[in-house]
Design a protein around this nucleic acid. Structure first.
Lengths: 270, 270
DNA sequence: ACATGAGATGTGGTCGGACCACACAAGGGC
DNA sequence: GCCCTTGTGTGGTCCGACCACATCTCATGT
């Protein structure tokens, strides 16, 4: 097998700036809460124009490690933050819409993540966090809840359990993965033949899930949440846009993890 | 409890442009492989300056749904692609460095994802994919492999199994999560007392894992990979930078999933 | 002394225009 | 027909200016 060199594609000053800032983060010299110098000062430090610097900052903002506020005062300027949720959500949402993942992929990922979340929650969740989940469940159980609100509360319930497990990463991943199929789920809820019965059935499982978690019966909770997720996803129709066979992963782009994003096996709907 | 309104912070024309493009994606009007008009044409279409448009495009590029190439010809210009791996990897890497997640969080997430991957791979992996994993394993088993190369091959082995399971999402997540702790793992490998013995022990598990997958014994493979991961992570020292207690999640930022990114429970090492 | 308000200041956000490097396309010279 | 030069279009960069907004400063009035 030949070596297959990849074009390196350097240049792009804003990437160099980005790399430089990232190194500061990895080295621990830039930490959450720190403020960056004003753009007009920072640009000449890097020896680049303000535009190039701004594009680097925009990337960091997209990743959720930076926020910027105009104006004056202690809250103004660019600050390092830790807000991965929105970034991750947007990323998965867009890629799901583009057909990078099939609905089946999402189902399996949800099962894996939430099994872990519920088991961990049963082990070590703080009662206060579970109370919050209970309140979401209560609001979800009210008669006449419209699908849209139910969907919102349902999402928050699952994420809340993940959050209560104390694991910020699975919590974030759960939220993002769930978010990426939110429109599909909403449409499925709205299309339910007997909406009240559907909601009641789902809430019965929710109630039992919460009870199992509270009782510390993690294995049973994990099993039930798997049933819960699989049962519901089964009612969804995979409307993933069928992938064209053209290779959309750009060989000229940096793909250091080699070709893990191949396009086989997911010849979606139709 | 008061309602606690969040500042909406609209404006920012490049976000409006971004939103507009995203809608095209969600509506299926922009698909992988499509080319965008040149920046100089597109900017006036949106009624914004080229800089603002470019910042929107930069965001899309960060997410891995767009690549741009200068020059002229059929490959030039901005194209919609599906390349989530790099984006996800960078995101988790940076956030791990910032302490958004603890090492324990990563451990649990890896266990959850890889249990699922190995079980699914045992169920339905294509032999060719497993052959590739076997080749990685062979290269990993060679005597005298330096830690750095071992780390690289180890990562690719795990990701390859995830890939062979046919699930693009868990594969991507596995790669990204693994990537975020790569430096830590590398340092742990280099610090091993008896490097040859360590490598041999890990490879013994790798070999058995692959055998179990090939034999279709998914449950056993899942159990073993959990042991494998937990055993190795146990040797790592969590050097996550201790989180300062200041609230780094910006309340002025869009956080539609409410407060799932709170900062409790992960007062990291030391 | 204190409150108040108008102006100064500094921040990110935007804009328009210009130029650069590069890769291909087109056409002329051999 | 082939090769080389020139033209053209792309993203990438730079510069300078202005805008909106929040704060700070400080003179003014009570």
């Amino acid at each position: 097998m030949p070596v297959e060199w990849q074009p390196v594609r350097q240049s792009r000053t804003h990437e160099l700036v980005l790399q430089s800032i990232e190194e500061q983060v990895f080295a621990g010299k830039l930490r959450a809460g720190d403020r960056l110098p004003p753009e007009r000062e920072l640009a000449p430090v890097f020896g680049v124009s303000r535009s190039a610097l701004r594009e680097a900052l925009r990337v960091l903002e997209t990743i959720g490690v930076l926020v910027a506020q105009p104006g004056r005062g202690p809250d103004a300027g660019a600050r390092i933050v830790r807000n991965p949720d929105d970034a991750l959500g947007r990323l998965l949402r867009l890629h799901f819409a583009l057909g990078s993942y099939s609905l089946h992929d999402v189902l399996e990922a949800r099962v894996a993540l939430e099994r872990s979340s519920f088991a961990a929650a049963a082990r070590q969740a703080a009662p206060a966090d579970l109370d919050e989940a209970a309140e979401l469940l209560a609001r979800m159980t009210r008669p006449g809840v419209p699908p849209e609100e139910f969907n919102e509360l349902d999402t928050r319930f699952h994420v809340q359990i993940a959050h209560s497990s104390g694991n910020a990463l699975t919590s974030t991943l759960t939220a993002a993965v769930r978010e990426s199929v939110r429109p599909l789920i909403l449409r499925a809820l709205e299309a339910a033949e007997d909406w009240a019965a559907t909601a009641a059935a789902l809430n019965a499982q929710h109630t039992e899930l919460l009870a199992l978690v509270r009782a510390g019966r993690g294995e049973e909770a994990a099993d039930l949440v798997e049933v819960h997720i699989r049962g519901f996803h089964g009612t969804l129709i995979d409307e993933t846009h069928p992938t064209d066979t053209t290779d959309t992963t750009d060989p000229a782009d940096t793909s250091d993890t080699s070709d893990t994003a191949a396009d086989d096996g997911r010849a979606g709907g139709r």
